[in-house]
């Protein structure tokens, strides 16, 4: 477990769909045109049930405790930070294989067309280094997004969680609980949009088929070498021509012991 666990607590009933969080994120992180690190989803008002208001739901990377994107990364370029529990990407190590993108149930990752590598919310790492909070949190006019360290009981995020025990919602895919660190207070809609993580066939083949195949091949080969070594160490050298490609009658002059001085070296 990380020393800290950064998280976002969201009161989506406060969201007015102004999308200032999205604009602030794009500016703060130089997100290329057409891409987003965060979002505001909306639920249509269900007039049949007498609900005359829709509902807006801000979101972004949920920095899960069980990150399926991290499991899909072959190089460890994306990992859960041991310092603060954020799921981050080491751009120097990411080779842009794309395995992590469909492995996220939330669609929080995208291939940044400018760097051709995976990109997503990092809770504004650069701003945090300067002691600022993430741009989306800072800019939200209704304070729908609250950010903080859950391991610090005095943080506003931890306090909100404690106060709202029993009415917290975490959005998860039907069959996979990624243990997201994004908590919604009370009712939030829509809820059933996270999809099952689907790492590409290439990664599934690597972990499920290629890796066991390679390890079995290396193990068998290693056993073969041990068997040969054992035979060499614990048996006497074979007589010179035992098993050395001589058809009967193929004996040539000078092919006695003397021509294989190496044979008992």
């Amino acid at each position: 477990m990380p020393n800290k666990q950064l998280a976002m607590v969201i009161d989506s009933s406060r969201c007015i769909d102004c999308k200032a969080c999205m604009a602030a994120c794009i500016t703060a992180n130089a997100v290329p045109v057409g891409c987003n690190r965060n979002w505001v989803k909306d639920a249509e008002p269900d007039l049949a049930k007498g609900a005359f208001r829709g509902h807006f739901q801000p979101g972004g990377c949920m920095h899960c405790d069980n990150p399926t994107c991290v499991a899909a990364c072959p190089t460890g370029a994306t990992f859960k930070s041991p310092e603060d529990g954020a799921v981050v990407i080491d751009r120097g190590l990411c080779i842009g294989c794309g395995n992590c993108i469909p492995a996220c149930p939330y669609g929080a990752r995208f291939r940044n067309p400018a760097i051709r590598k995976a990109d997503k919310c990092d809770y504004c790492a650069a701003r945090r280094e300067q002691g600022l909070s993430p741009a989306c949190v800072d800019t939200c006019p209704t304070k729908a997004r609250v950010f903080g360290d859950l391991s610090d009981p005095d943080s506003e995020a931890a306090r909100l969680l404690a106060e709202n025990k029993g009415r917290l919602v975490r959005l998860v895919a039907a069959a996979t609980d990624t243990k997201p660190n994004m908590y919604y207070l009370g009712v939030t809609e829509p809820r059933n949009w996270p999809v099952e993580p689907a790492p590409p066939t290439a990664m599934a083949a690597m972990t499920g088929l290629v890796d066991p195949l390679v390890k079995t091949a290396v193990a068998l080969s290693g056993l073969g070498v041990l068997a040969m070594l054992g035979r060499q160490l614990f048996t006497k050298p074979t007589p010179p021509h035992d098993g050395h490609g001589h058809a009967p009658g193929d004996q040539t002059p000078g092919s006695g012991d003397a021509d294989r001085p190496d044979n008992r070296s």
């Binding site: 080779i95 290439a202 890796d211």
Partner: peptide
């Protein structure tokens, strides 16, 4: 991008064998 994902897998396979 699919080519990159498969390259990772095949690189590992070829080196391993």
């Amino acid at each position: 991008v699919w080519m990159v994902g498969w390259s990772v897998t095949l690189h590992y396979l070829a080196v391993g064998l």
